[in-house]
Design a protein around this nucleic acid. Sequence first.
DNA 1: CCTGCAATGTGGACACTGACAACATTGTAG
DNA 2: CTACAATGTTGTCAGTGTCCACATTGCAGG
Lengths: 196, 196
Amino acid sequence: MPRRSYHHGNLREALLRGALRVIAELGPAAFTLREVARRAGVSHNAPYRHFRDKDALLAAVATQGFRELTRAMRDAGERQSKALERLKQSGLAYVAFAIRRPEHFTVMFDAPFRSSKDPEYMQASQEAFNTLVNYIRNCQDEGQLRAGNTLERALYAWSLVHGIAKLAVAGRLPFRTKGAMLKFAMFAINESVSGD
Amino acid sequence: MPRRSYHHGNLREALLRGALRVIAELGPAAFTLREVARRAGVSHNAPYRHFRDKDALLAAVATQGFRELTRAMRDAGERQSKALERLKQSGLAYVAFAIRRPEHFTVMFDAPFRSSKDPEYMQASQEAFNTLVNYIRNCQDEGQLRAGNTLERALYAWSLVHGIAKLAVAGRLPFRTKGAMLKFAMFAINESVSGD
DNA sequence: CCTGCAATGTGGACACTGACAACATTGTAG
DNA sequence: CTACAATGTTGTCAGTGTCCACATTGCAGG
């Protein structure tokens, strides 16, 4: 990784990484295009060659986050054999992702940007949700979850893990360790399917 | 409401109201102290006589929001006679509040400010949670909910309604009307206690 | 009824930000 | 090798949060 002369070489990636670090250190509110540029050792205007504006950078960070989340959920699910276990573990992975990458998670869901227009962002987030829907459907097909409106069931499951994740990231769950939070998440997930 | 001469008369209230309107119209990111001051018809520095800084104003808005939320939950609960119904309706009121006052809800939970140090804010949010805990405990006492770790149960219930509320406010629930969202919320709440 | 002071509001200033435009440097396709 | 597109830089502008000094006003104690 030699010192750059004029062209950075891989500025786009560096900006994405830098954005995450800034958000992690100073919080999403203190996130600044100029600060990110500074850390990449580049002038305050260089980022505009790679992102239309501040929101576009944040949208890119969020998109990347959704892809990671989807991967984490699938990895966790595929490690199980029973349909219901797949669903549970993938839900747990959702919470674990939020705890492991709070900056990403924050940007993904309540970033201060109006990203709904970015097609990549929309697609990436849709894919994460689809993963969940599939696990639910599999459970219903195998009779491990009451049949019925699959979408409604999926939204229910999503709401639960999302709520846990949000509260955890916001520091509102009275647990000190990540392990304790995940243990609670497992309790809640089990509880939520105990009626079926 | 006469035109003010020099002193506004009730600037503090006007600023709080104005802040909500700005957030509702432009989004929480576009919220600006100067814009709020402009709308109140005062100079850009007048707000500093009532709030230490921008974060303090937002914290005040959030505090006010938590008080309203607490009231809404209690009102909804007290309208019921059975303990389990009280719990359910107060959960529904949580979601309804978020849908009715998305600006408030946003500021309360993921405002771009570090408000954890404001004692009034902390107390107001704690009180909202206590309301929920009490309803849970009553259900357990009357045997309408499995006994056990009350705090854990309360966090579970909170996570669920919080997740629904967040997703609804973020526009991620595929329902077009508020009524449809609340109907889904009721479904989820019922589902969540169906195992007990 | 004064009068002086604390509360409240104003104007100016400064460093910082996002964004635009004009210009500089460089890799690379032909 | 050479033009050109991609990438990076400097300069600039309006808008922002916050500090300071100053202006206006309500009100309490004489």
